[in-house]
């Protein structure tokens, strides 16, 4: 690992100013879960690390009736996993977090860091995408909030500017009669990075039969976490039927662009997408039909 300056700003504004001062050669640092690996490998050699961990405004997980769930960028995976609020209102996130890496990484790795890394083999992004999450970003020229989808650009590339910091994730309160499921598929050990991850969210129309909003988010099968919008469109306005599920699953498998690598061939990954979409959809629909309140049920079917 190269030598670097170590800075500890107290506010977001101060942090952005420091990043600006280094003109792209400084990196925000929080848990270091991702950064330490790429720095040890010499893939990035920043001149300075700006430790944002002491910035109070980036902390905490809360529910705001107008905005929804507000998850501070510094919330660790473990905080999300064990948050009482999340466990009650958005349990799918707890279930997903339980399978992220290991307890040590979950203790230090942050939600903000996870999303800002642009690492393609992750889980959290798919669930956030399915929930229409947005991310708030601060920079020297002000604040902005964008749909999470717009954050991801390519492998390890995001739309964050070099002087910007991701400050929080905002998950709008899901409509009533909503069900969500995430299935993580590992092609070898259970502790391996995911080979494919699929999140499906279905919010039913008032008739509680036809699909209102459908989100199918796919991970690890494109340069960035993606939505299978073609597949989503097939379902909108229709009740779920086995044929429709099969069509949508096939469409999702077509829409993604996996590459062959250590964790599986392109053909295999497409096949797995198809199976997982089918399975996740059935569970999400079932949950939506039985959903009584805001609480989004999640079983332990988090892995395939």
């Amino acid at each position: 690992m190269n030598d670097f300056e170590y800075l500890e700003p107290a506010t977001v504004a101060e942090a952005c100013a420091m990043l600006k001062r280094y003109g792209g050669e400084a990196r925000p640092y929080a848990g270091g879960a991702y950064l330490s690996i790429v720095m040890k490998q010499g893939l990035i050699r920043p001149k300075a690390l700006v430790n944002i961990k002491k910035i109070q405004e980036l902390k905490g997980i809360r529910f705001d009736p107008s905005e929804g769930f507000v998850i501070g960028a510094l919330a660790t995976h473990r905080e999300l996993e064990t948050s009482q609020l999340i466990r009650e209102k958005l349990p799918i996130l707890c279930a997903v977090e339980r399978e992220v890496a290991n307890i040590r990484v979950r203790n230090v790795g942050t939600v903000g860091g996870n999303l800002a890394s642009g690492e393609p083999l992750t889980d959290l992004a798919q669930v956030f995408l399915a929930l229409d999450a947005r991310v708030a970003i601060s920079g020297p020229s002000g604040d902005r909030t964008i749909p999470l989808e717009e954050l991801f650009v390519d492998l390890y590339q995001t739309s964050l500017g070099e002087e910007e910091i991701l400050t929080r994730v905002i998950v709008p309160p899901p409509p009533p009669a909503t069900g969500i499921e995430y299935i993580r598929f590992s092609s070898s050990s259970v502790v391996d990075k995911p080979c494919v991850g699929v999140a499906v969210r279905i919010s039913l129309n008032a008739d509680r039969k036809t699909c209102g909003t459908v989100r199918i988010a796919l991970g690890c099968v494109a340069p960035r976490p993606m939505r299978a919008q073609g597949a989503e469109a097939l379902l909108t306005g229709h009740p779920l039927s086995p044929q429709l599920v099969e069509q949508a699953a096939a469409a999702a498998a077509e829409e993604c662009s996996p590459i062959s690598d250590l964790r599986g061939s392109e053909r295999f990954k497409r096949g797995i997408v198809r199976v997982l979409v089918r399975r996740a959809m059935a569970v999400a629909y079932d949950r939506a039909s039985h959903a009584s309140t805001l609480r989004l049920r999640s079983g332990q079917a988090g892995s395939a």
Partner: peptide, 13 residues
């Protein structure tokens, strides 16, 4: 009190 991977945790932090 919490387990961390000391190999990848900056001492300054």
């Amino acid at each position: 009190g919490k387990p961390v991977s000391a190999c990848s945790f900056l001492a300054v932090d």
